[in-house]
């Protein structure tokens, strides 16, 4: 029998942190569904969900209950093991991505020296899940969606990774807490002022990596029904959905930490500033989704290979020179 005192404290910290992250992901999913539908409604001059609760505020809970209660169907001819493991592979790394994020001055689950690469490495597992799901569904739309997703994610991962390098060069650290501490409380002390181009490229790449409109070709509703998750019902789809919102939050949180000063704010720095900035960026993502049409696939690939990659390479070169000279 192991007594409680024998359990190492780091383990307890990680378990408590993971529980907190899971609660946050769940609540975030509910909030994002409501936000998305309400903002979409108002942009299209209609009220959005209005029936369940005052101003439809309980709508996401009704949605969640519906998703959980739905029957899970495996399509005929599908590979059942890969088919059902795909949503789990998509969702599980999202939890790890939250571990090194500093939500507040003392609200970081594990202070790891390579936090930035850790988030990137685990968020890149999502592509794998999507192509496994798309392939194992035995459905042409799913397979096409998966093919598009691979081409898109591989192409956009390059400028995404490179757009973080100028920040690492400036701050000299891969620890997200150090990068936050490098920046000051006021907006002109944030790194977005020094690296505006890197911020724009980073933010656009987040759109592409999370398959958000205008880069939602892997799940283009009008062409591919729902792309890689066409066949998924119930919580299989629900997990993909939760994962997508979690990756959006991870992306926005990274943008906040790297470029917008993280939890630092003009008055009273703390986790509230972090959440305000993250949800501000999320609102921008939702706004963009309902404002721009989907890009064509050649436009999508031209943008990253012909514009973003060369531009960000020049940006890194200039940053390196400036850092070396000053």
């Amino acid at each position: 029998m192991i007594s409680l005192a024998q359990i190492p404290i780091p383990l307890i910290k990680i378990v408590v942190g993971l529980l907190g992250i899971l609660i946050f992901i769940g609540l975030n999913g509910l909030a994002c569904v409501y936000l998305e539908r309400k903002v979409a409604g108002h942009i299209q001059r209609r009220p959005g969900p209005f029936e369940v609760g005052p101003h439809g505020i309980l709508q996401p809970i009704a949605d969640a209950v519906k998703l959980v209660a739905k029957q899970m169907i495996t399509p005929k001819g599908a590979d059942p093991i890969l088919y059902w493991s795909a949503p789990i592979i998509s969702f599980a790394p999202a939890i790890v991505c939250f571990l090194p994020l500093p939500f507040g001055p003392s609200l970081q689950n594990i202070s790891i020296n390579i936090g930035l690469i850790m988030v990137l490495a685990f968020s890149s597992l999502n592509v794998l899940a999507l192509c496994l799901g798309g392939w194992s569904s035995q459905n042409k739309w799913s397979l096409l969606g998966a093919a598009r997703d691979i081409a898109q994610s591989v192409a956009y991962e390059i400028p995404l990774l490179l757009s973080m390098l100028p920040i690492v060069l400036l701050t000299g650290s891969l620890n997200l807490a150090d990068i936050t501490a490098y920046q000051g409380a006021w907006p002109w002390q944030w790194l977005v002022v020094k690296q505006p181009l890197a911020f724009i490229i980073f933010f656009v790449c987040i759109f592409a990596e999370t398959n958000r409109a205008p880069f939602d070709l892997p799940e283009a509703e009008s062409e591919l029904t729902a792309g890689f998750h066409t066949e998924y019902a119930g919580m299989g789809f629900g997990l993909f959905f939760l994962a997508e919102y979690s990756y959006m939050v991870v992306g926005c949180a990274l943008a906040t930490i790297l470029f917008l000063g993280g939890y630092q704010g003009p008055v009273a720095p703390g986790w509230w500033w972090f959440l305000i900035k993250v949800y501000g960026l999320l609102m921008v993502m939702i706004w963009v989704r309902w404002s721009f049409p989907r890009v064509r696939f050649d436009q999508l690939l031209n943008l990253t290979w012909k514009w973003f990659t060369p531009l960000i390479l020049i940006n890194i070169l200039i940053t390196a020179l400036v850092v070396k000279l000053i």
């Binding site: 794998l128 192509c131 093919a147 691979i150 591989v154 991962e157």
Partner: peptide, 26 residues
């Protein structure tokens, strides 16, 4: 060696195997 481990996930699991998948799944 967490850096090497993370790189293994980033490069081999996240990128190389996805490219292999692209080649064989189609």
């Amino acid at each position: 060696a967490p850096f090497i481990g993370i790189m293994q996930v980033l490069i081999y699991v996240g990128a190389v195997s996805v490219i292999i998948f692209f080649a064989i799944a189609f």
